[in-house]
Design a protein around this nucleic acid. Sequence first.
RNA 1: GCCCUCGUAGCUCAGCAGGAUAGAGCAACCGCCUCCUAAGCGGUAGGUCGCAGGUUCGAAUCCUGCCGAGGGCACCA
Length: 593
Amino acid sequence: MKQQIQGLVQDALEQLAAQGALTLEAFQGELPTPQIERTRDETHGDFATNAAMVLAKRAGMRPRDLAERLVAALPSSPAVARVEVAGPGFINFHLAADAYHAQLAEILISGPDYGRSQLGAGKRVQVEFVSANPTGPLHVGHGRGAAYGAVVADLLTAVGFDVHREYYVNDAGRQMDILCASVWLRYLELCGEDLVFPSNGYKGDYVWDIAASLHREHGDDYRVEAGQVFAGLPPDEIDGEPNGDKEAHIDGLIENAKRLLGDNRYRFVFELGLNTILDDIRQDLAEFGASYQEWYSERTLTESGAVNRAIGRLRECGHVYEQAGALWFRSSAFGDEKDRVLVRDNGQTTYFASDIAYHMDKLERGFERVIDIWGADHHGYVPRVKAALKALGDEAERLDVLLVQFAVLYRGGEKVQMSTRSGEFVTLRQLRKEVGRDAARFFYVMRRCEQHMDFDLDLAKSQSADNPVYYCQYAHARIESVLRQAAERGILVEPSSGTKHLERLETEHELALLKTLSRYPEVVEAAALSHEPHLLTHYLRELANALHTYYNAHQFLVDDGTLRDARIKLILGVRQVLRSGLGLIGVSAPAQM
RNA sequence: GCCCUCGUAGCUCAGCAGGAUAGAGCAACCGCCUCCUAAGCGGUAGGUCGCAGGUUCGAAUCCUGCCGAGGGCACCA
């Protein structure tokens, strides 16, 4: 619809140019695409353009004069009822009701395709999201990234991009070793060994579960005397140990574990921990409606030599130097605040080195656009990754990093403390169990991602009008209910008369609803391109409101056959858009509530 | 200290590639069910858009400074 208006203004501009009223030289040989906006105030019509004001200076005309000439040059269109120049030089378009009737007909014909488009033209886009370390279950912080990433990916798909959803699995590195050691120590405790669990170990119950399965399946096969395990370790950072160092302590434990268990057995425990947790994360995300095309292993990056290749490329470009036994990347030359280590003095490559290799690989895989969705706590990481891509000569602009702020949970008006130690829930699974998937998905994307979010658990759970999820779903359920009753009365629910009788839709409420429906494609497009799912949740609330208002004001199943037919078609259109929109954010559209 | 994000109605938030009187939902107050689910609808009230400058025909929106909130500044991942 918007494009239709845009086309008209474009034609008018071209005509003025042809008449010599606008000289192309002022625009470097090319006329700008006019900006068309929905009006905020309905007395200003349906659409408006500020083209005359924007172009006035270069055209050497006063805005209102240019506007008048543009209006005179506009081709006539049955969709436009009236055009006027207003204010400082706006051109306002009042659409004919028929234009909206035609749009409804299109919705009914297109069905689920209404709102989808080919804007993305099949361009390949990668969306990497969540990518939490597989050292424990996902918590509610990851939940927001999961919901946000899934919706951004689905929105991009809806507007025609070929989207590749990916999870980067940090299956290498120290944190995984700490998990492995934690599992093993718990196992030893189950074997009857007496030990003091390290303060830096993973203490969650899930560690006990993994240890228990190891003990159940393998008895004492992995048992080593606790005295040997803790032999020669630096003291832990616990009460009564003034010189304790929890980092050194756990690193020593890992060393001992590797030595005492030997490669194979260590590997076995390590894999058991990794796979158990990764399976749990996979299942959790699947249940949350976040699907992936690929789970990309950090370990394969090292094993395939990609990390060394990345370092090699940086070295060839001359952006690498050695200092104090470590290998550094001169990231400060590319916008980072300081240089970063690639290879530590102990010979191990850093996480950053893997990440360079990973992003290099992403771009090499030919994605036109690479979107990383990270927690806001990683924002300091953005400049160095971009620096690496710049240094490698890759187009760093192809990478978009979207930062998702944390969500703070509230229950009973009180902030829910998020420490692992407190008894209050922290996992995504617990959140889903408490408020349900629909509410969780909706609430998580209701706010702009860079906005700090207050997540009100009581509201998310409440089955009331205050709850935006129920409010939108209820609109859908109400329509279904009307259709059920129509069927009971023997009224054709799928009208056989095609798009006839739509002209009977003429009340204020019907036109408002039609207008809202016509905005849907624009909302999907804007939400997709700007990565802002909240535009869609806001829209759905508006649409539901328009439906509820209509429902209260008019009876749908009236005796007048053509009117009834038209009204049923209208609510069928609303049902379609509610379904599509809720579907895009991963929320169900129930037939009954 | 430096960097990032945010600061809009009592609360939670939209609006920000500048545009015509600043919007919504809660909460408050007043109304609406003999009628397809009142899990609904309508109305009233409520704001010097953190503060101060600047850019321009026009600034909540762009720029600078300050104040406030959160986060980040590892040879951790």
